[in-house]
């Protein structure tokens, strides 16, 4: 399977970049999977996880809170204001936030994504 070049950028750093076989992310219109040979595309991202399947089959996950993705000639660039890796997520705090303010849907959603990425879904 041919591979795609993925880079995941946050405002202050390059989070991850390298070859991958697929990228799954969430745009404003729903889940989207990107494989090699995808048409050029520019899309707004929703709050959601980004799952990158690396060349060796292992997965890389990050929580992305809004942002954009461009796809161009097998180059996928994801850039987001905020991007958190599994090890950066404070599970206890995220759980607390969900319990604390159940009416703030945006916040709940953000924290649910955090937990999902951290591998401890609520």
């Amino acid at each position: 399977m041919s591979s795609i070049k993925v880079s995941l950028l946050a405002t202050d750093r390059l989070v991850w970049s390298g070859p991958a076989t697929s990228v799954v992310l969430k745009t404003l219109e729903g889940e989207l999977g990107i494989l090699a040979g995808h048409v050029p595309m520019l899309s707004s991202l929703a709050i959601g996880p980004v799952i990158i399947t690396k060349d060796d089959g292992s997965k890389f996950m990050a929580a992305v809170h809004g942002g954009f993705v461009t796809v161009d000639q097998n180059e996928v660039t994801i850039f987001a204001q905020r991007c958190e890796l599994a090890e950066e997520i404070d599970v206890a705090r995220a759980k607390e936030a969900i319990v604390d303010s159940p009416q703030d849907l945006d916040r709940v959603k953000r924290n649910e994504v955090r937990l999902l990425v951290a591998g401890k879904p609520a």
């Binding site: 404003l28 219109e29 050029p40 595309m41 520019l42 899309s43 161009d72």
Partner: peptide, 21 residues
């Protein structure tokens, strides 16, 4: 080749993407 931007697909509409960009 890259300087000439190919036709892009937008999700959602181009206008909305620009709105948030």
């Amino acid at each position: 080749r890259k300087a000439v931007l190919p036709l892009y697909e937008f999700e959602p509409e181009p206008q909305q993407v620009l709105d948030s960009l």
